[in-house]
Design a protein around this nucleic acid. Structure first.
Lengths: 363, 363
DNA sequence: ATTAAATGCGTTAACGTTAACGCAAAATGT
DNA sequence: ACATTTTGCGTTAACGTTAACGCATTTAAT
């Protein structure tokens, strides 16, 4: 159970019969060491698994680490990114004794220009790590390919193929969609009929996979139909109302609706407010507006991507890699998490105040 | 956003006009300081919010921290505690550069004698922190009251009133029961009839609250009946079969069953294996046996208490308190988490291998 | 052949904290 | 009055790592 004490640079030096300076030069590739000595030292380093004591290193260097977050504006996606920032903020506070500093760099997720402007505003010289939301894959890819190769980065929320992040943090969108189907089916009491997917009109890989998962759930069931409809701009009131009206005209009696992103509140507000019948609605993300409507009963289920946890993990794993030089798992999967109106506990709420009633163990 | 640099002991000393030795004596209450000097130093320490650099301290002291886990045997509750241990183990590995060492002290949760024997085997002299599962409240209370007051401890899984733990980690059992009701109702397609609770015959506060929550869900609904039955020993095959047989005789057609603890697999195995009809069953905890039956479809839903996360958090928060001397939130609520057969991802699995298919972002 | 540069290595001073040690001066005991 | 203890404080050596610096040799350049 107890691993043995870590070997120190001084002990390595003694074993080889050189000074610590020489060992240090080998360790940091600072040259001025003969090939034979270098080999001997490298052999021992390997043999004894020497790893520099991160505490001593930090003490000596007094290094301040700068991590940059490249993410959509915090208010976008109905405030989703703000939830991520809460987790990031908390991690930053906890890790401040280690000299971790966080800088938020936000862009408009619908503007390539904004992305580039923001990306270029990051001062790469004194950047020790990047937290990236690859929400515009092509641009992110392009930018990363021109990046100095020595800057470590993590992906959160989504990922990109064929890259080398320290780790990828995210939720399986296919599975989320599948489960959305399952829950929607239950909330509709397995009634036969037509079930709708409402999605933004975008190329977003995540959204597509969620829809695929949702459709996969219904594929083998008999008596059920599914319809996918995309809306060009859910944030714009007229567009939204026009879209939903024509949807209801086309499908007059949908048994349930799955909104594949965080704009589910816009849908639920129109379809389930002041109506004589309730359409089961399931959507994504516990953003404030969605939370409110969940509480009011206009939304039935929300799938959470656990944004604050993702943000926290992104910072923490980067710290583990950069400061502690530990080995990080290549993937950090985020379990799919449901919220009904009865189990609303905001994780890492901004003010750290949790609702007492949700946690009353005694009396 | 950037907090200013922490003040050092040397700077405090300079400001007061004494040496660092004197300041250190004040900080550690080692006497040999005049009252006036002490006051001056204390004032400045307060004013500038001096806090010793945990890295330097650890470097100097080379202090090894010993944390003891006082918990039921890892195999008890169908292996539930083993899952907690996984999270503890992982935290211990991550924190090993800080000299954290973990010692597992396990007892039989059904034997007071075993509890005392185990509790007394903890060498309190070199104990820097305790992780406590207060699963036998009376004995734990008694033991804690006789404990030297300077040892910090955290509660996980459950808590005790009127104590001063560093933090309490746990899930709201009432809410969990309530949601179990809600989900069971959905899985039974809201069919009218009788719904059963099966619980162990014990005084366990958690279990009681879960049942209360479950009953609360049905209380205001019309056409639904609920029946609570306790079984003396679910682990014993004959007792179990006798219990379930008489249950089915009494309630021939239950619409759904809620098992208020992790022994749901025993129930599902008998009631839903090789039967022509499926009774919706919901239970607690993603222990291996339950996971298997969930996968096979004999169990419909499992509520997870996120044992590995609880274990991880318990160690991590204790580390934050003891090593970093940070302020810890008084309560760490564990959100209620559901598993269906489609979203099985084991958090913190022992071998750190996650199921790839659950996290395939691309293609 | 002489100077200059490069190589190979050791030494050392920090980083901030802690606690042992030392040493006056004051307080106490006989 | 003198010995002894106590008080109040400063000094210092670690802890492990890093990188600047120094100093011989060896190698290269003119």
């Amino acid at each position: 159970m107890n691993r043995k004490r870590q070997i120190t640079i001084r002990e390595i030096a003694a074993k080889v019969g050189v000074s610590i300076g020489t060992v240090d030069r080998v360790l940091h590739n600072r040259g001025r060491v003969s090939p034979e000595t270098r080999e001997k030292i490298e052999a021992l380093v390997k043999k004894f698994g020497y790893r520099p004591n991160p505490l001593a290193r930090h003490l000596k260097l007094k290094k301040e680490y700068q991590f940059f977050i490249l993410s959509p504006y915090r208010h976008e996606d109905s405030g989703y990114w703000g939830l991520v920032f809460n987790g990031i903020q908390r991690a930053a506070e906890e890790l401040s004794p280690f000299g971790i500093h966080i800088f938020f760099k936000e862009f408009d997720r619908y503007s390539r220009e904004s992305f580039w402007k923001t990306a270029h505003s990051i001062s790469l010289e004194d950047c020790d790590g990047l937290l990236l939301a690859p929400i515009i894959p092509s641009e992110m890819l392009h930018w990363l390919n021109e990046l100095p190769s020595n800057i470590p980065y993590v992906f959160f929320d989504a990922t990109l193929p064929d890259m080398s992040p320290i780790t990828e943090i995210g939720q399986d969108p296919y599975n989320g969609g599948f489960l959305a189907g399952k829950l929607l089916c239950l909330f509709a009491l397995r009634e036969r009929g037509t079930y709708c997917v409402i999605a933004p009109h975008s190329e977003d890989y995540h959204i597509k996979r969620r829809i695929e998962g949702f459709l996969a759930f219904w594929a083998n069931l008999e008596g059920y139909r599914t319809e996918v409809r995309t809306c060009s701009d859910m944030d714009h009131q007229e567009t939204r109302e026009g879209f939903l009206n024509s949807l209801l005209q086309e499908i007059p009696n949908p048994k349930g609706i799955f909104v594949a992103n965080s704009s589910v509140h816009s849908v639920a507000e129109i379809l389930n407010r002041d109506n004589s019948f309730h359409i089961p609605i399931i959507g994504y993300d516990l953003v404030p507006e969605n939370e409110r409507l969940l509480r009011e009963g206009l939304i039935d289920v929300l799938i959470s991507q656990r944004p604050a946890y993702q943000g926290y993990q992104a910072v923490y794993q980067l710290y583990r890699h950069v400061v502690l030089q530990q080995v990080i798992e290549k993937k950090i999967p985020i379990p799919i998490h449901f919220y009904f109106k009865e189990n609303l506990i905001q994780e890492y709420s901004p003010d750290l105040e949790y609702k007492e009633t949700m946690f009353a163990f005694n009396d």
